[in-house]
Amino acid sequence: MLYIKNLHVAVEGKPILHGIDLYLRGGEVHAIMGPNGSGKSTLALALAGREGYDVTEGSVNFMGLNLLTMAPEQRAREGLFLAFQYPVEVPGVANVQFLKSALNARRVHQGLPELDAMDFLALVKEQLLQLGLDESLLYRSVNEGFSGGEKKRNEILQMLILAPALAILDETDSGLDIDALKIVAAGVNRLRDPQRAILLITHYQRLLDYIRPDHVHVLDHGRIVRSGGPELAQKLEAQGYGWLDDDLQQTIPGEETRP
């Protein structure tokens, strides 16, 4: 599904990611953890195609396509979805209008007929209910004046409606209280499917109590310094990121010898 090979990314000429390798198969949930400033959001934004995140080396293959040459909207239409860490406010544009346009852009790309207003609303309302969001949210401007929790849930709402092949959640858990977190997690779990992959980016292990990952990777200084199963996340939770430094000496030479 997603094959990232030796990805180097620089922002404003400053190298941030120094060779990321990651392989996600359909049905898998991967978590990327790491301290602040380790490059987690850079990875997410580079995959979504944010301008200014320059790939200086490496390749990314997404469902047989060269992701790096695609415009952000092409990536979205092919089924890549990024839940933003900081969802953007778009004044004057109603949420419902935005969602419908986005969904129909994807459907047209998939060769499906556009949904009319009635079918679309039925679809959205069901998801709203599940996420505990009020219907009035649909008619407010995109993210404008939303609380932090509403913004994050709005991202999940978009994800559920667009039903992507690959969902990348960038710190979606930050700023959520425990009830909201459970709702968001339930939303993500509903999306789990052998045809889909999910990449969770998080600083804390907390989210992983509710969305159990198949693989956990630790990102530090722009490199994946550890990979393992869910137990790795628990170790991080218990011991923090400090212990990684001790082991780093062993890991880095290993990376350098990698072909």
């Binding site: 195609g49 944010r50 415009a71 909207e73 979205a76 953007v88 852009a105 978009q158």
Partner: peptide, 22 residues
């Protein structure tokens, strides 16, 4: 804003129209 809309699959032109109409 443009990037956010495009990352949801809207074309550059549609994203622009949507923002301008907003």
């Amino acid at each position: 804003q443009l990037f956010y809309l495009k990352s949801r699959g809207l074309s550059g032109e549609d994203a622009l129209n949507m923002i301008v109409n907003g």
